[in-house]
Design a protein around this nucleic acid. Structure first.
Length: 421
RNA sequence: GUGGGUGUAGCUCAGGUGGCUAGAGCACCAGAUUGUGGCUCUGGGGGUCGUGGGUUCAAGUCCCAUCAUCCACCCCA
């Protein structure tokens, strides 16, 4: 069908664009303040980037990617997330030579194949920040604070920040062993998926939503208990910094993120009231990713936030986003001669920076007024026979309905004054 | 990928057990108001009933498929 869009995609209509502009404005502003610079990477990348970066046993890579062959049989994929492309761009352009720590942010569409539902779409938008080259726990805290500050600026409330550390590869090896030993007696009772995970990636069993698996894993050794001294110290410092900044968080030793590149700090932000898809952001450290992708061994940390879910939550909480400025002047005309004069006036006022419109549908004067009211024009200039005769204009202030007649020559200064331009 | 709900005008929805030219409210346009929006009244335009098949003398209504959408699982943003 030519008039239906693909499943799980959305048109952002003129009436809705304002919210998006507001989000974008806030994003650029906050990143500027925190010292992060924007980076824009391609919408598609080599498939291998995500297989290596995100991890070949993750659900994203196994069943949610939009992959395709181009005419030259290259394996390409519409980006399902922003971290791997950002790391790739950072390494490919040797930014580590000129920019350390490399603090960047991105904003744009991501693509994942899955059944759409409330808060889950096949094309969705993420705002993310990444910082490369520093392993300072204060930076972990800065990143988390930035995310929370962003939500705060939007007016979003009732957030829950979950925090955990998934350690370094050594801690994980140790934990993995302890976990396998603990679960071995009940292996047969785990769900099929988790039996698989037992061998490949037992940590992910914590992430299982199956009630039975959850119960079995309830008293299992958590990753936090297996953290080595340096990982443990790092995690403590992150908490200290967050505490100093007054950020409230909740430790969740079972928090595991669905992307394989995470190490050390992992966090997730939840909000109530937008249905089952209540994770509106998440992130963590990925100290092995740059090397995994063929670069120098540099640490990294970042987050990704889902903009559609944030908008849903704002709507749910009844938050009114900053209103858009109202347009200035509508020129309503009553005959062909007046229209000619109005058209000329419109062109002149636009050159001076006014937001001006007039009717192109041959509507009655009444309908023109109505339209101007609906579009929230602040003033309507009415041009008819008497105005043409004495070169004046009837200016109506829409908000109050009061109307004055002023000489055409004075309209510009009058408006400038009234609109404070 | 699994399970369930929905799909009639721009929007919100009526249309028991199939039966004449398919309805309402809001919105839109016009008139009442011969030069003026938001109230009132009157009139008007607008629908291949998601799409494609099937059953039937007859389908918006029943059956099948398909697409879209919503909800949950899964996963995550």
């Amino acid at each position: 069908m030519l008039t239906t869009r693909p499943r799980g995609t959305n048109d952002i209509l003129p009436d809705e664009i304002h919210s998006w502009r507001f989000l974008e404005k806030t994003i650029h502003q906050i990143c500027k303040e925190y010292g992060y610079k924007e980076i824009r990477t391609p919408i598609f990348e080599h498939t291998e980037l995500f297989v290596r970066g995100v991890g070949d046993t993750t659900d994203i890579v196994e069943k949610e990617m939009y992959s395709f062959l181009d005419q030259s049989h290259r394996q390409l994929t519409l980006r399902p997330e922003g971290t791997a492309p950002t790391v790739r761009a950072f390494l490919e352009n040797n930014l580590q030579k000129q920019l350390l720590p490399g603090k960047v942010y991105y904003l744009g569409p991501m693509f994942r194949y899955g059944r759409p539902q409330a808060g889950r779409y096949r094309q969705f938008h993420q705002f993310g920040v990444e910082a490369f080259g520093s392993n300072d726990p204060a930076l972990d805290a800065e990143i988390i604070i930035l995310a929370m500050d962003f939500y705060r600026r939007l007016g979003l409330k009732n957030l829950k920040l979950l925090l955990n550390s998934v350690g370094c590869p050594e801690c994980r090896k140790k934990h993995r062993h302890l976990l396998q030993v603990h679960l071995e007696p009940v292996l047969g009772e785990l769900c099929d998926t988790c039996q698989n995970r037992y061998e490949k990636n037992p940590l992910r069993i914590f992430d299982c939503k199956n009630v039975h698996c959850q119960r079995l894993v309830l008293n299992s050794p958590t990753i936090v208990d297996s953290l080595c001294e340096s990982c443990s110290e790092h995690f403590k410092l992150v908490q200290t910094y967050l505490g100093e900044a007054g950020v409230v968080f909740q430790l969740d030793p079972r928090l595991v993120r669905g992307l394989d590149y995470y190490t050390h700090t992992a966090f997730e932000i939840l909000v109530e009231g937008i249905g089952a898809q209540n994770a509106i952001g998440g992130g963590g450290r990925y100290n092995g990713l740059l090397e995994e992708l063929g670069g120098k061994s540099l640490p990294g940390i970042g987050f990704g936030l889902g903009l559609e879910r944030i908008l849903l939550a704002l709507q749910e909480q009844g938050v009114e986003l900053q209103a858009e400025d109202k347009p200035h002047l509508f020129i309503a005309t009553m005959n062909a001669e007046a229209k000619l004069m109005g058209f000329k006036l419109q062109a002149e006022l636009r050159k001076r920076g006014f937001r001006v419109e007039m009717d192109y549908l041959e509507r009655s004067i009444k309908a023109q007024l109505k339209y101007a009211g609906r579009q929230e024009y602040q003033f309507v200039a009415i041009l008819g026979e008497s105005e043409l005769a004495d070169e004046s204009v009837a200016l109506k202030k829409m908000e109050t309905g009061e109307q004055i007649t002023i000489p055409l020559a004075e309209l510009n200064t009058y408006l400038k004054d009234a609109l404070k331009i």
